[in-house]
Design a protein around this nucleic acid. Structure first.
Length: 447
DNA sequence: CGGCTTTGACCGGCGC
DNA sequence: GCGCCGGTCAAAGCCG
């Protein structure tokens, strides 16, 4: 800091009721500056008799004499409070503001959960569309795959990221729709490439689409690595073991569980100890629950769902301030302590959330910041948005980890904290954050 | 007795 | 076609 008082000033208004219903406005400290000596400050004290309730009110203002500007501000404030009801009004306003702040925070939490659900549903629709296109293509015949299609798609994605895309959302969707019609590959081998595209509209029976989406969703897996001595981590759901096999290359048996919280719930999970480190338990989830989850199970379910969405969801409209999660995955994840990775060798697309490693370091963040700016031409606002999106993801991981390992919880929280607390990075984001604070959750890097 | 685990059998995909 | 392998089934046994 440059010592500017305009930046260092703090305003503290603490109000409370004494035992005798005496309302006290304790302090308005406009300059909590270490250079301000007590001798150099002037204290104004007001004691006013409230005409309405007869309660004595005391107002003290500690002013530094070092700044005429702020003194003027203070005097102006004092003048504004000449009204008999000024103090009580301020107190009431503080209460109202705090209440409003709490309400907004709660609302933001709710909206974020809603957004996550929308992403999941969006992914489901993409699955349905992709399957439909595949069927349509089989009957009508398809043209050869043109690699340039993918190159163009990537270019458009980058354009969206840079906020340079001028086309409307509908145009973008239509482009991708046409692009996808030309693709000739099996959906299973290709779906990570075509999933990011959106289609404006489609026609098919809901039954077929549900089946198609279910079939494809089942192939998406989220693997969680966590240290645990227990045979199975507790994630809030009820599971029934239905099999155990010796997997090749691992002396530890692999156990198979299915969710028994509802009849016909398709969710399965596999649990196996790591070969290299027997203290690490790998839990692989597959499928979506068909029933409401208890609060204790929400964190893990939300994590796996978010991770799957992160893997499979596509570009978001730049006009709404969102970014392509796939780009985030490729860019942020490698720098967040290998927290998550995507397996291409697995027969199923798998996101691995590694909750066993060390947290993100400052150097990682600096690399990340540089890469965003260099590769995507992102300004602080876009980076902040990316960080917000990612920090939400991290916290879902963190919440889930708390069910299995407290140390993992701490580590993931540390990773989130590292992102939020890096002074260099956050100072660069300060302006952006203030400008978008109305659009995103203010709890960035919350603990 | 109901729910759970155990464990060998079975099935389907895949590579040779 | 055969064998391997991952995944599932289902009968038997266990347990509270």
């Amino acid at each position: 800091m440059d010592g500017s008082r305009d930046h260092d000033q703090t305003v503290i208004i603490n109000s409370h009721y004494d035992h005798g219903e005496k309302r006290v406005v304790n302090e308005m400290d406009f300059f909590a500056d270490e250079n301000s000596s007590k001798d150099a400050s002037t204290t104004f004290q007001f004691k006013k008799e409230n005409k309405f309730d007869g309660v004595e009110q005391e107002l003290r203002l500690n002013l530094s004499t070092g700044s005429n500007l702020l003194a003027t501000k203070a005097i102006a404030s004092v003048k504004s409070m000449k009204d008999d009801n000024a103090s009580s009004r301020i107190s009431n306003e503080v209460v109202v503001i705090r209440s409003e702040l709490h309400r907004v925070n709660t609302e933001n939490e709710r909206l974020r959960d809603t957004l996550n659900q929308i992403n999941s549903k969006n992914y489901s629709l993409q699955m349905q569309i992709g399957t439909l296109l595949q069927h349509q293509q089989k009957f009508q015949g398809a043209t050869a795959v043109d690699q340039k299609i993918f190159d163009d798609k990537d270019i458009r994605s980058h354009s969206v990221l840079k906020g340079m895309e001028e086309n409307s959302m509908a145009d973008e969707l239509q482009k991708n729709f046409q692009t996808k019609i030309q693709i000739e590959k099996s959906p299973e081998k290709n779906f990570q490439e075509w999933i990011p595209n959106k289609v404006a509209k489609f026609h098919s029976s809901s039954k077929d689409m549900d089946q198609a989406a279910e079939a494809t969703m089942k192939k998406v897996r989220v693997s969680v690595r966590a240290r645990s001595e227990a045979p199975m981590i507790s994630d809030g759901c009820q599971w029934r073991k239905y099999g155990q096999k010796m997997a090749k290359g691992n002396p530890c048996p692999r156990a198979y569980y299915r969710c028994t919280m509802a009849v016909g719930c398709p969710v399965r999970k596999q649990v196996q100890r790591c070969v290299e480190d027997r203290s690490v338990l790998t839990t692989t989830y597959e499928g979506n629950h068909n029933h409401p989850l208890p609060p204790a199970a929400m964190a893990m379910a939300s994590t796996t769902s978010a991770a799957a969405s992160m893997l499979l969801s596509g570009p978001m409209p730049s006009a709404d301030g969102f970014m392509n999660p796939n780009v985030l995955t490729r860019t942020i994840l490698p720098y967040t302590a290998n927290l998550a990775s995507i397996s291409a060798s697995s027969p199923f697309p798998t996101v691995t959330l590694d909750l066993t490693n060390t947290p993100t370091t400052l150097s990682h963040l600096q690399i990340l910041q540089g890469q965003f700016t260099r590769d995507f031409g992102l300004g602080p606002q876009a980076i902040a948005q990316a960080l917000y999106n990612h920090s939400g993801f991290l916290h879902r991981v963190s919440d889930a980890a708390s069910f299995s390992s407290e140390s993992s919880h701490d580590m993931t929280n540390a990773a989130t904290a590292a992102i939020a607390s890096d002074p260099n990075f956050t100072s660069a984001l300060a302006e952006a954050l203030s400008s978008i604070i109305g659009n995103i959750n203010p709890n960035i890097g919350r603990q």
